[in-house]
């Protein structure tokens, strides 16, 4: 187990290097001038442009720029964005909001997704099963910006049940609706995944054994079948946490949430190379750790999988 974790951590190094270099190269190759629009209606004075380019190493060749960036990165410095804000500080602030949003989205997924999936699975072919299948299909096929804007319009603006935008405090109540919107597609996937696994496992021999042991149906289904059916579901949720922690560009924009996704989006628009690379590096690291966690969790959930 310990050896496995060390090996996985070591494997992260080339992945992080590769990912940061790719992003760095792509930002480098982007057309456009980062100083454009920095000085109001007129072009910036040449002296300012020269100073700006010097400060951000923009005159160096790609590999030198990247090398200098890596040097700082190794010291835990994500650099200063073109707007003069340290990327690390900005991310730290925004990760609180993104983390809250992701956590609440996962709560929706787990509660509604698994509940609906189990219900549909044990009543296969019945009304509730068809209801779940049709409604999840609907949710999966509608893009998230449509779901988000529609719910915001009806539940927020018209009925006034939920706040329409999220303040910088990002309270629990404010995030209820956005996190639901963010979770909607995953709720549908999880419901379907749970249902499929329940249906399959209910036919399994060990469930027949559980019945033959004289266990109550509640125990045979709710413990023996569900425990096995949740293995792939938990894996999916784990991977999804990694994705959610990467920020939600669309949902954050609809509800004006000050999260990581919005920051990344704005930085790309502003050709803010340092901020983009810094953010993506953080996202890659978070995603890698989420994946490692999922793999470790898999070993805990399914004793047949060994990490030795």
């Amino acid at each position: 187990m310990g050896k496995y974790i060390v090996r996985r951590l070591l494997q992260m190094i080339p992945v992080i290097l590769g990912a940061t270099f790719l992003i760095y190269a792509m930002v480098f190759a982007l057309p456009g001038d980062p100083t454009a629009g920095k000085c109001g209606e007129r072009p910036c004075p040449p002296a300012y442009v020269a100073k700006f380019r010097e400060e951000h190493n923009l005159n160096d060749p790609l590999l030198v720029q990247y090398g200098k960036y890596l040097g700082k990165l190794a010291q835990g410095d994500l650099g200063t964005s073109f707007y003069g804000i340290p990327v690390k500080e900005e991310l730290a602030k925004r990760y609180v909001t993104t983390g809250k949003l992701a956590l609440m989205a996962v709560a929706w997924e787990t509660l509604i997704g698994i509940f609906a999936g189990v219900l549909a699975g044990i009543r296969k072919g019945k009304f509730i099963d068809n209801l779940v299948l049709v409604s999840t299909l609907l949710v999966i096929s509608i893009p998230v910006f449509v779901i988000g804007a529609t719910l915001q319009m009806f539940l927020g603006v018209r009925m006034g049940l939920f706040p329409v935008t999220v303040s910088s405090q990002a309270t629990f109540y404010e995030l209820l609706l956005p996190s639901f919107v963010l979770a909607s597609a995953s709720v549908a996937y999880i419901a379907r995944l749970t249902r499929a696994n329940m249906v399959e496992n209910l036919r399994a021999d060990y469930v027949r054994t559980a019945i033959a042991k004289g266990l109550t149906r509640r125990r045979a289904v709710g413990l023996h079948t569900l425990r096995n059916s949740l293995i792939p579901v938990v894996t999916y949720i784990g991977v999804d946490i990694g994705a959610l922690l990467g920020g939600a560009i669309v949902t954050e924009r609809i509800f004006n949430i000050q999260g990581v996704g919005g920051f990344l989006f704005r930085s790309i628009g502003a050709r803010d190379g340092v901020a983009v690379v810094g953010t993506v590096t953080a996202l890659v690291v978070v995603y890698l750790f989420a994946n490692l966690l999922v793999d470790l969790l898999y070993g805990v959930l399914d004793p047949r999988i060994s990490h030795d």
Partner: peptide, 18 residues
């Protein structure tokens, strides 16, 4: 269980793996 009980053919699939 207490009165009538059964042993199945394939013990690997008949026991819960987890």
């Amino acid at each position: 269980g207490p009165e009538i009980s059964m042993v199945f053919q394939d013990a690997l699939s008949s026991l819960n793996p987890v």
